[in-house]
Write a protein that binds this DNA or RNA. Sequence first.
DNA 1: TTTAGAATATACCAATTGGTATATTTTTTA
DNA 2: TAAAAAATATACCAATTGGTATATTCTAAA
Lengths: 198, 198
Amino acid sequence: MLTKAEQTTEFIIQTVAPIFNKNGYSATSLSDITKATGLTKGAIYGNFKNKEELAIATFTSTVKSMLKRITDHQSQSNSPIRKLFLVTDFYRNYYDYSKEMGGCPILNTGVDAKHQSSLVFQHVQHTITKIQNNVSKLIDAGKQTEEIHLHIDSMLYAKRLYTMIIGAIFMTHTMNDNSYLLETMDQIDVLIRTELKI
Amino acid sequence: MLTKAEQTTEFIIQTVAPIFNKNGYSATSLSDITKATGLTKGAIYGNFKNKEELAIATFTSTVKSMLKRITDHQSQSNSPIRKLFLVTDFYRNYYDYSKEMGGCPILNTGVDAKHQSSLVFQHVQHTITKIQNNVSKLIDAGKQTEEIHLHIDSMLYAKRLYTMIIGAIFMTHTMNDNSYLLETMDQIDVLIRTELKI
DNA sequence: TTTAGAATATACCAATTGGTATATTTTTTA
DNA sequence: TAAAAAATATACCAATTGGTATATTCTAAA
C-alpha cells in the first residue's frame, strides 16, 4: 500500500509531466506546477529537492509508461520479426497517444534539455540508448529464429529505424499531419520485408 | 549602403540568433540579449517591437542563410538528380555548420515554439512547406530530364527525404554522434539510386 | 556648424522567478 | 486516542522578468 505521501509524490509527477513535456524546462514555472496540482510550494519542495529533480522524475515516469505500452503491444507475438512489425504498428497510433503526454517526451526533452539541464539531457540519451539496444536485440533474436538474415548489422538497423521514427514524429507534430507517421511506418515495413526478412 | 540603424538591427539579429536557437524562446531573456549585444533595452526595443518579433527575425535570418547555403552548394550541377545528391552531400557536413548556428533552427524552433509562440511556430511550418516544395520540384525537374521515373510521387518522396533528414539531425545532435547523419545520407543516396533514378 | 530627427541609454514599473525558514496541519504509530 | 513524525501551508526573500516613458546622445542633412 502506498502511503499518503507516496501518493502525493506520484500525483505531482502525473499532473506535472505533460506540462514539462509541452512547455519545456524553463518555460514551466513553479506557479504552473502549484496551479496544476493545487498544492503549494511547500508541498512540492517537500517531495522534490528542486525543479530539476521534478523534471527528471516526470520524464522518467512518462518514458517508463511509454516503453511499457510498447512492450505490452509487442506481447501479441513471440516472433521477433512480428514484434518489429508491432513496433511500426504501435507508432501508427502514436500521434494521439503522444498528444495526451504533451508531445513525444524523447523528442521534446531531447531538444529542450540540451541547453537547459544536462542532468535531464543525460536521461534522454540513456533512454535512446536503451531503445536502440532493445531493437538491436530483437533483430539478433530474429537471426536466431532464422527470420532475419545473419549478415544484417543489428545495431545499424536499430539506429536507422529509430532515426526514421523520430523524424516522422517531429514532422507529424510540427506539421500537424499524421500522414508523416503513417507513411514512414509503411516505409519501414517495406524495409523490414525487403532487407531484413529471410 | 546600410544606415547606422540598419546595421544595428542586423547586428542584433546576427548576435542573438544563435542564443534563441540554442535556448529557445522562453529561456532567452532580455538580459541575455542585452548582455550579448552590449546594447541596452532601449536600443533593442527601438529596433524591435517586442521579444517575439526579434525571435521571428532571428529565425527567418538563420533559415534564409541556411537555404542560401544549400542552394549555393547545389549550383555545382544543373542536373536535378545530381542536385538531389548534393542535398545529402550538404547534410553530411551539417553537424558542424548547425553547431555554429546553435543547432538546427527548424528542429529546435519547431519543438520549442510550438507551445511558446504560435507566430514563430507558423514560420517554422512555412519553412518546412517551402523546403518540401523545393525538393518536390527538383524531382519533377528530374522527370523532365528523364533522370527520374515518371511514376514517382514527387511530394511523397520529398516528404520522405526531409523526414529522414530531420530525424538524423535530431539523433546526431542528441547523441552527439555524427554517424547518424552520415548513415542516413548513405541510406538516402541508395534510395535515390534504386527507387528514383532511371 | 547648427539643428531636427533618429537612435540609444537610463531609470523605472509591477509581476514573477526559484527557493527557503518556519508555522501549521495531517498522518502514522504506539 | 495521544504524541511523535511527517507532510503541507504560509510568508517571505533577493533577483529577474518583459516592457515603457523619458532623458540623452548620436547622425545626417542643410
